[in-house]
Amino acid sequence: MKKSIPGPVSRAGNIPTRMGSWSTIKPVLKGKCNFCLLCWIFCPEGAISQDEGHRQVLFNNEECKGCGICVRECPTGAIEMAEPEQGERP
């Protein structure tokens, strides 16, 4: 088997940037998630991950810029923008 090409050349070991401080409001799952994954595919930041066990999506507040695409594209309207609770804020 051919070995895969070496990873990114960055002295800091490829630290992803954290843009969470750009916005104070974040998406919060208020309703029932039907796990259609539309928010996940449309998130430009890749800040949404999947919780396979609970069959719902998870939001990474450290990377979310609060653009609100997930809120608008959610077919069931289960996501809302809200100020996160104290301690959750990045």
Binding site: A12, N14, P16, T17
Partner: peptide, 8 residues
């Protein structure tokens, strides 16, 4: 030193 790319 940050980059969002995880490929070369």
């Amino acid at each position: 030193p940050q980059t969002p790319f995880f490929v070369p």
